[in-house]
Structures are given as C-alpha cells and as structure tokens.
Design a protein around this nucleic acid. Sequence first.
DNA 1: CGGTAGGTTGACTAGGATCAACTTTGGTGG
DNA 2: CCACCAAAGTTGATCCTAGTCAACCTACCG
Lengths: 244, 244
Amino acid sequence: MFMDRNQPDLGAAEWSLPARCAACGVRMASLCGGISAGALEALNRIGRKRVLRRGEALIWQGDIAEQVGILHHGLVKLSASLEDGREQMLGLAFPADFVGAIGDRPSSHCVTALTETELCVFPRSALPGLVEAYPEIGQALLTRAYDELDQLRKWMLLLGRKSAEERVASLLLQFAARGTCSPGAPVALPLTRQQMAELLGLTIETVSRKLTAMKRDGVIALPDLRSFVILDAPALAVLAAETP
Amino acid sequence: MFMDRNQPDLGAAEWSLPARCAACGVRMASLCGGISAGALEALNRIGRKRVLRRGEALIWQGDIAEQVGILHHGLVKLSASLEDGREQMLGLAFPADFVGAIGDRPSSHCVTALTETELCVFPRSALPGLVEAYPEIGQALLTRAYDELDQLRKWMLLLGRKSAEERVASLLLQFAARGTCSPGAPVALPLTRQQMAELLGLTIETVSRKLTAMKRDGVIALPDLRSFVILDAPALAVLAAETP
DNA sequence: CGGTAGGTTGACTAGGATCAACTTTGGTGG
DNA sequence: CCACCAAAGTTGATCCTAGTCAACCTACCG
C-alpha cells in the first residue's frame, strides 16, 4: 500500500512513526525530516544501527561502497590519498549528515570515524529503488548534494588561494559558526592539530604556529587543546579574509 | 495530461520530440537524454536558447541565480573570488554539462563563458516544480551532482597536496582523457596559461615554467600555444602522481 | 615512574610567488 | 604585404611562506 505517498501529511503521520525513528535525535535535521511517513517506513525497514570505533572506516577509497548512512553521534571525516601517502581531508560529517553516494562506481574517498560514532546505515544497492519509489528521498538527497557542492567550492577557494593564517582563521570561524552562538564563550575544537592540518592542506607545525601567533596577538585564547575562545571576532574575520 | 510519465518509453517517444530537442547535438549526453518525452516537453516549453559572449557571466557570485542551463557549444568556467581579487577557478563546464543549482540561496560562485558559448537556459524558479512533477529530472540532476562532487574532491586533493609540477601534469592528463584517444595525437588546450593557473591554484609564471620543463625533458611537445602532444605517457602519469 | 601521543618551538630549506624585462603571437589597418 | 600594437607567454633574479627536520615540552595513562 502506497497510500501515504499521496498524502505526505507529516504532522498527522506522527502516530505511525517507527519507534526507532521517533526516538532518533537527529531525524528532523536529517533527510528523514523532510519525507513522508511511507518513505520513512521504507527507510526504517532497511536501515540498521551501526557503531564505528575511532579510526574505523565506513567506506574505502577505490572500493564500491556497500553502505551509506546518516550520522547520529560522533564525527566522521572524508579524505582522499595519493599512493605515496599524502592525504587531504575533504570535509567532515556531523550528526544528521548523510554520507555516501548512490552510484555504483568506486568511491573517490574514504569515510572514517574520528571519534566513536553511531549511524543509521542502509545498503547502497537499495537506494536507487527507494529514490524511484519515493521521489521525495531523491529530492532530499539532491538538496543535500547541492549544499555539499557549495561547501566544497568554498573549501577549494581556501585550498587554492588562502594563506596558512587565513586557512586557520577560516577553520576557527567555521567551528564557531556551527557551535555556541554566545560570543566570548569557548568553542569546541573537535580536531587534533594533525587533523586540522589535513583539512587545511597544511602541516601540523604550521597550524600550531599560526594558532600560537593568533593567541599572542590577542585574537583568540586557547584555554586547552580542544577548545578556543574568540577574543576579537572582527580581527579574526579579517585574518580569515572573510568580511562579507 | 501526464500519461507519458507512466510510460517513459524513450525509444517509441521519438516521434513526439520537440523539433529543437531533436536537432540538439548534446541531448543524449545531457540530462535531457535520460528523461521521458513528457519531461522533455516540459523542459522544452520553458527553455530558450541563449548565447554568451566571451567573458559574459550567466551567474554571479553572491547573486541568486535566475537561470540555469545546459551547455551546447563553448566552454564555461565556475570560479570563486575573495574580496581582494584573488580568484580560484572551481571547474569547467563542457557541452552537455548542467550549470546552476536548484536552491534559492546566493550562488557561491560565478559562471562565466571562456569562449563564445551557446546554451539552453531555464528559469531557476521553475526547477523545483519540474522536479516535483517529473522525478526523473531530479534523479538525473542527482546523478550529475554526485559526479560533480567526485570531481571536486579529486581537485581538492590536487589543490591541497600536489606540487606545481604534479598539478600541471594532472591537468594535461585530464585534457588528454577527454579529448582524442589516439596516442601521439595533439590534444587541444582550451585554456590560456592564465586560466590554467587559476584552475590549478598557481601563478601564470609557474605554469609556464613547468610546461617548459616538461617539454625540455621530452615528456610533452608544445606545437603551439593551444595544444600539446604527449610524448611519454607513463612519465607524465608519474609526474602527475597518478599511477593507479 | 616511565611511556606515549599530541603539541610547540627553533633552525634551516625549498618551492613557488613576485617583480621585471623581454619575446612571441595574432589581429588590424595602411 | 607589412608595420604596428596589444595580448599572451617566457625567462631571470630575488624574496618569502610554509615545509622539513629535530629537539623539547606537556598531559595522560598504565
């Protein structure tokens, strides 16, 4: 019965929510939040919970992904490597983000957990059929894909044209934008210096030096290794070459 | 009447092809090639031909795009800039490629013609409705979006981790891959040195020097400014750090 | 207490940017 | 057809940013 596909009244459909989805903390923020009860049920049927330990990979570069997933807790990195070991982080996935692709080509990148991570995984092979049956899922994926394209393009500008100092400042601003909105409050820094370097296309030494310089200049404070405080937001925006 | 949505028999539908689409040289390669006759007719109704002169923009960074398009002839660049004028090319669009996005947020990048360009444009505001009415269009866009994500990720690895020489060699290989398949034949180089530099995150001088060096080492020949010949393909692959 | 992973700092180096001069190419009009 | 000019490209000298290598520091853990 596909009746509910024709009346995707999400509010009224709450009663039929699969228990697991009703308890899901990221549902409304994830692509599950914008689809009909029928589509959600179909996803729920084929989805299962999976936990990744720190360092464990969901998808390997060069392999055809067997699973795609929606992040619940934790932090995941996308990264690509050259044969000689050089590695570039391509982005992070936070809770509610979708990771993976629909096509059956070898993946261009790895997906690896940076912390203990919990996600809802689906067999990739089931996706094309689902998108066919529930176009809303395709639309949700499309919106997210365009968002991701925009993010990547912004990052390409950073990698191609920004100086080391601008890169570090940009990263700090990005963490601040996604974290607490209260100015002056410490912002969590979920990456090690090494991981920041991988993400910014720099070395760990350069990241460390630039952070120290910003601290010395009173732009930021570094209360501990995993957080920072913005002391002079306008100055940080200037350092990041972001003053729109 | 949406009858044809339920019987997207593309072969048998040829008879009803809009004249313009029947004459379109890139139709089958573009997203129009994978959709039903009904969807194609709907697209044809709202599409119109547009010509961009060299340097003319279809979409400006920061503006909300009014048009999206499918390229027929010519070459188009996507690029992003910082306030101080530094510019990074984000990619090229070739005939049959789709440019633009569905969302109504300000564009993260410019879309500018590098040569006299002809495309089929559609009002962006009509897209969400079209995707809703013809899910196949959404699926075609989704496939293309994932392809583009993969391309961008590959380019991020180049920008973040490859040396100048590796970048130039990678670009040459990419042009060779999309051009003639006959080894030893000259490959068209559709970009000026300046444009190559913008795309590679380098300066024009560095591009010139690396090309000269490869020529000196007998890896390539440069018969004129707008083409090159691969003399030693394996060596070029090594220089590009691409030996899969 | 020692060991280890993560982080910082310093000295030195090298790759690519910058600045400047010069050459080549291609188009235009006399 | 050639002279001229602007745009594109090349080459050289020099500078500077970020990479490399190495030592050391710090926090945390068994």
